[in-house]
């Protein structure tokens, strides 16, 4: 029974990595925009839940609807005012979004204070062979699965997905076909931001919310995306699955610190062997 519980924890860790990296996968993997402020987008999602909770909004509504909406709109704003001038200039984007990241952290610290705020959402617990597992773990796993399936369906089977993929591949050709690349870029960035906001909101009850919370996630998100390689969905699943198992199994065997070290170690080795990520070598024709 203990091994079943370990499996659930591994799945939950993988789901966590999927959540924090799907938005980045779209923004960085598809659009080639290095968004160093990704962690702060997560943090904004978390703060949306805290603020909405204080205003008396139902926490589930705040997490699943409000947070993606707010951060998605914020993403569109940032893209229009800021990111769109940097397309194709990777290093400049890196510096610009780094500035944005520091700005957001400072801003939120000024507004809400440098303090940890908790969000309490309870889903009870489930008995797995005599061991109790938090219901929230199952919820996270389910949401991560839904996000992956939905992203796959949209990209693969809708006109919207086709247009987005086509524009990212060759904006000039897309424009020749009467598609406005600028609008597609804006929408894609907005959707990536919305998914990131959702992830921040979902993680808030576990981690608590603090202006610097993004820092802990941004490295993990980039590692997952880069280890995943060019294919968005398959890459996220394979990288999150591999890195999640390594870190959780190590954590069970030893401590959370060694678990983090193991995750980073495996990522380094992986990139040495597969410089283009997992899907740069395997599953090359997948999305």
């Amino acid at each position: 029974m203990f091994s079943l519980v370990v499996m659930i924890e591994v799945l939950r860790a993988a789901a966590g990595l999927v959540l924090i990296s799907t938005g980045l996968m779209i923004i960085f993997g598809m659009m080639r925009v290095i968004n160093i402020a990704h962690g702060e987008f997560l943090m904004l999602g978390g703060y949306t839940v805290v603020m909405a909770g204080k205003a008396g909004v139902n926490p589930w509504l705040a997490m699943l609807v409000l947070a993606p909406l707010v951060v998605g709109l914020f993403g569109v704003l940032v893209e229009r005012l800021f990111i769109r001038f940097f397309y194709g200039r990777m290093i400049d984007t890196l510096l610009a979004t780094w500035g944005l990241s520091l700005f957001l952290m400072g801003m939120v610290t000024v507004l809400f204070g440098n303090t940890v705020t908790g969000v309490s959402v309870s889903l009870g617990s489930v008995d797995v062979g005599g061991l109790r597992v938090s219901g929230y773990s199952f919820f996270l796993i389910a949401v991560a699965a839904i996000i992956l399936i939905a992203t796959y369906l949209v990209l693969r089977h809708t006109k919207l997905g086709l247009v987005a993929r086509g524009t990212m591949q060759n904006p000039g050709m897309a424009a020749a076909l009467k598609i406005n690349p600028s609008v597609v870029y804006m929408a894609t960035f907005g959707i990536g931001s919305a998914l990131t906001g959702l992830a921040g909101a979902l993680l808030a009850p576990i981690t608590g919310v603090v202006p610097t919370m993004g820092v802990a996630f941004v490295a993990q998100a980039f590692i997952t995306v880069i280890a995943g390689g060019p294919a968005i969905i398959t890459g996220t699943i394979s990288a999150a699955g591999l890195l999640g198992s390594v870190s959780q199994l190590t954590t069970f065997a030893t401590t959370p610190v060694v678990g983090d070290v193991a995750l980073l170690f495996v990522a380094v080795v992986l990139l040495r062997i597969l410089p283009n990520g997992i899907t740069g070598k395997f599953f090359r024709r997948s999305i």
Binding site: F2, V5, V6, E9, R12, A13, L131, R132, V133, S134, S137, I206, T207, G208, A216, Q248, T251, F252, T255, P256, V257, G259
Partner: peptide
Amino acid sequence: TDFFPLDVTNFGPTIEKIQS
């Protein structure tokens, strides 16, 4: 005896370890 750095927030694996 398990040790946690001050910024650790996820205690999921620990809670399962304690139970078992």
